[in-house]
Design a binder for these strands. Structure first.
Lengths: 235, 235
DNA sequence: TGTACATCAGTGAACGCGCGTTCACTGATGTAC
DNA sequence: TGTACATCAGTGAACGCGCGTTCACTGATGTAC
């Protein structure tokens, strides 16, 4: 408890910060990034406009926080899905579960998904640790591809990823221990392809592209993921 | 020529409209949808602000025009790719060419791609003919899947599409003649999956998600498309 | 060819809006002795 | 426990901005006879 001990002031401060973010998220959900306005947030919290600057340096700082949170939250969802898999689950089932957790998270809160994956906010520079966050999401996918046998179709991606891991030591260090006993090139390729698949079908679903086109996102994503499993000869 | 004959006034009018759109597109490229501002456009064309209202009813009307143009342009690119295929091209090669033309178009002008496929503009209602436009893009994909044999992984999508075509007469009427001699359910499933694949890898590429992750979009997209061809047992 | 009228392009002034952000200041809460 | 000081939360006024859009009006271009 000692470490968590907080003065009442600090405690209250965290509460207010959280409340600000919460309202910002609601605005985001209702009108997109452009609708996130400090002035209106302040009014809702019951503060004057300038008071917000005690909690966030600027509007961009607030957005950055939201983005960081969203990444962390998505990564947590995926990790949790990985952890709660039954011990003997087949690679295919694991892949489905991981992808499904991504989709579930995105569908439940499309605005946050779009904040991460949608059109980049013009004039906004993403914080540099975004790459780390993306990795955190991708990490649990790597071990799934242990012992995979990539088809001719995906082999070029595998080669590219292998080359990348050879060129970038940090990546290799991150990927190797996760590619349990397998080639990290294969694992990386599988993960990136999975990511692309998810981005594809989730993106279409979230942005309502195929509304009324009679498909549902789950079927589509599952088909893509199963095909991916096929392409890597996973059980 | 008679039909095209225009009074100088009408001619000039079209010119100005085109110039306005051109500048709007530049603003779009530079700062996203939010940066498209009538006031600044007017300044660049050399007109006063209110004068723009002679050419577009409102800012939304202008955006609608840009969206319509983008759809038409993309559809034209895909159609042209379909038309310029060598006669004996294999389904796989045709699929690659069609997907490649989509990607080429998107990479060359990401802002227009994002206008169509990116985060929906908040508060902006897409014109109802958008669905038709999406179909125009998808159309050329249908005949590629003639005689395809869908794998178990993608069969659920095929079933769903079949059911959809049975339920929606307009769709059936659109799809059937294009699914040359095959089941329109299979063709629709193939096209939708192709679309999802493209959206996935192009989206990642365009929004710079995997910058510095050592893959290039072409390899990724080709791998996805080839896998799709595998899943449908295309030659 | 000339005249009378209708249409259209364009203007400047103005309205009202909400935004992010800065500043000098007040009052409450915490801290050191 | 009490006092003196430092820190922090919050305020109201103000700045400057650019935006979409409306309005009443002028002058040029087209059209009908």
């Amino acid at each position: 408890m000692a470490g968590t001990a907080q003065s009442p002031r600090a405690r209250y401060r965290e509460q207010t910060r959280a409340e600000i973010k919460e309202i910002a998220l609601r605005q985001l959900a209702e009108g997109g990034t452009a609708a996130v306005a400090l002035t209106r947030i302040a009014k809702e919290v019951g503060l004057s406009g300038p008071a917000l600057y005690r909690y966030f340096d600027s509007r961009d700082a607030l957005l950055t926080d939201l983005i960081r949170d969203a990444y962390a939250d998505l990564a947590a969802a995926v990790s949790q899905a990985a952890d709660s898999l039954p011990p003997g689950a087949s690679p295919r089932a694991r892949l489905r579960a991981l992808a499904g957790s991504c989709r579930g998270w995105a569908i439940a809160q499309p605005h946050r998904y779009l904040l991460i994956e949608g059109t980049p906010v013009p004039g906004y520079a993403a914080p540099p640790d975004t790459l780390d966050s993306a990795r955190a999401v991708l990490g649990p996918f790597l071990p799934v591809f242990e012992g995979a046998a990539p088809s001719a179709a995906v082999r070029p991606v595998v080669e590219q990823m292998t080359a990348w891991a050879e060129a970038d030591a940090a990546v290799a260090q991150w990927a190797r221990p996760r590619a349990a006993g397998g080639s990290e090139g294969v694992a990386l390729a599988g993960a990136v392809l999975a990511w692309a698949h998810m981005h594809g079908s989730i993106g279409l679903e979230v942005s309502g592209q195929f509304n009324g086109m009679g498909h549902d996102g789950d079927t589509l994503l599952t088909a893509q993921i199963d095909s991916l499993a096929d392409a890597f000869s996973l059980d």
